[in-house]
Every structure is written in C-alpha cells, then in structure tokens.
Amino acid sequence: MGILQSYKLRWKRKRLVFRAFRKRRQLRQVTDRMQGLPSQPILLFSTMRNERIRLPYFLDYYRKLGVDHFLIVDNGSDDGTRDYLVDQPDVSLWSSTAGYKQSRYGMDWVMHLLRRHGSGRWCLTVDVDEFLVYPFCETRPLRALTDWLDSTGTRSFAAMLLDMYPKGAMHEHPYREGQNPFEIAQYFDSGNYTIRKNWPYLNLWIQGGPRARLFFTDQPKQAPAMNKIPLVKWHRSYAYVSSTHMLLPRGLNLTYETGGGEKPSGCLLHAKFLDTFALKAEEELKRGQHYAESQEYRAYRQGIALERDLWCGWSEKYINWRQLEILGLMSKGNWA
C-alpha cells in the first residue's frame, strides 16, 4: 500500500463528504424532535420511500433494541409514510424529492445527517427492511453492545445481510401492518456465501444467499453484496463508500480477524422478499432509480415471472441469533 494509494483514498473520502455537504440543500426538515436526548444517544438513520406498511414494526423493533432516536429521510412517499413519521415522537424527519440514484441511493442525504447529528455517537444506518441481530440481542440492549465496543476501542461493527424468504411464492402470504415479517419470511441460506478481500478498501466482499443461487448463476460477479457495516461510532470525517458496505477511512472496514480468531459480528435479517416485493420491483423498474440500472430488480422480475420459490430443501428455518452463531454466519467473538 503506497502513499499514492492512501492519498487517493483520502481524496475520495473528502469528495464523498463534500458531496454529501452539497446535497444538504435537497433536504427539507419536516420535524426536529432531537431536544432532550440522553447524552450518548444511539441514533438510527434511514432513507425510505413508500414504506408505510412496514413502518410500525420497524420502529417498534428498533425501539425495543434501545435506539433512542430515528433520523429519517423520506424520498417523496405518497402512501402516508410521511404523515405516519411526522406523528412519531422519537422521529426527526427530513424530506427530499430529488433523485434517489443521484444522491448515491440516499447515502448522500444520510451522510449529511450523520455528519450533522451523528458525530461522536453510535449510529445505526439501515434500510426499512433490515433488522439487526447481534450476539445476546434477546437479553442485552444495543447500549450494552455499544458500551462494550467502546470499552474495547472498537469503532465499527459488521452485520452481514441475510436474505430471508418464505416457503412458497411470495404473494401467498400477504404481510399485515405491524406483523413480524419473519413470521412469513422464515427461511435463509446458511452456507453458500463467497468471501474475498476487497482491495483497496480492505473490507470483505461477501456474496451469496438465495439471490445469487437463483438469479445470478450466470453472472455471479453481479450478485448483490451482503457485507455491511451498519453500526459505527461516527466521526464527521467518515464516509460510507457504497451503501453501508464499506467505509473510509478504511480502518473502519477491518471488522474481521485475520490471525485466526473471530471478532464479534451480527446479521441484518433482510425482510425484502414479502408480497410487497413484486410491487416494489415493478415500481423501482419504472423509476429506474435503483442500483446498477435496476439490473437486480430486472433479474428478480424474471425470477418472479416464473413464480419461482426461493425456498429449497436445504433452506434453514430461522430460530434465533444463537442458531446463526452456530452456523457460522455471525460470532460472539470475545463478548461473553
């Protein structure tokens, strides 16, 4: 790793930070409810569009984990998402009608909020269909984890995306508002992930799961990345490079051990494959605002057109975090 490379990355980081700063004009604050937060709040950042039906469970899930405040950017919803969020006492809402794609899939907006409100605090950046599971999450709140990370001097925590899917076609089990999505999407792939080191960012690039298995057999390279680092003790100079897959400075990406041991890690259960998905895929295709020219969605639509069931005989049924740890998808590390 030469000086030139570090210099390039440094510039890249500065560019990203500045870009987010420029995009701040696209954000209009709707509500600000951040007064009276505890001194070290745990904050959740998210961008969404038309997710009204998912919101009650999502907010509830993270409130129970111990998130103190939600900072949400609404990207032009027209299904009541915005009204619902305005009414929540622990949500500060911004809205933007600018292009999702042009803002690096919402990352520019979120990064601006991270910089403004997240510095020196533990920040969780997730999508509305991502549910964080970490070691001991049933018995220890998020604060226990962040306290422990603080005590070990760790600044970032990895949680790999785990695609959850139902048995049978997605439309067979309609999702009800407020319902735990994993009552429907109970299954996941436990051991078909490919990992490589992603030079020069030094993060691990993980692909696999049902999407790779079914929709990307011919072009595995295009399969979506599953590695994520959603929980970071933010500093104003940090930048997310691509979604929450990796960060700069890249020391933040070293969430894995190379000497043989295991560091602690979690999983983001991905409740994407519900009956709402077909609708979403259609909408996103039309908007053309999604990742890689909506290639991903195109691939899914073909899959869905075939009424393809993501389930297979070796699908694993989700029980709890301990199961994920035994399967080797996440680890307790030395947190006991």
């Binding site: 990895a158 949680a159 790999m160 992930y193 990992i195 080191k197 691990l204 993980i206 590695n227 969430t255 894995y256 051990e257 190379t258 000497g259 043989g260 041991g261 295991e262 560091k263 602690p264 890690s265 080797g328 998808l329 996440m330 680890s331 307790k332 590390g333 030395n334």
Partner: peptide, 17 residues
C-alpha cells in the same frame, strides 16, 4: 473464540491469512 476461532470457518468476522 477470539484468539483461535473455529477452524475452517470463513465468515464476516473471521478471515484468516
């Protein structure tokens, strides 16, 4: 677990050299 880990496991927080 932190020092040695589970041999043969490659995952998001164990990727030995």
């Amino acid at each position: 677990r932190r020092v040695k880990g589970r041999p043969g496991l490659f995952m998001q927080s164990r990727f030995p050299n």
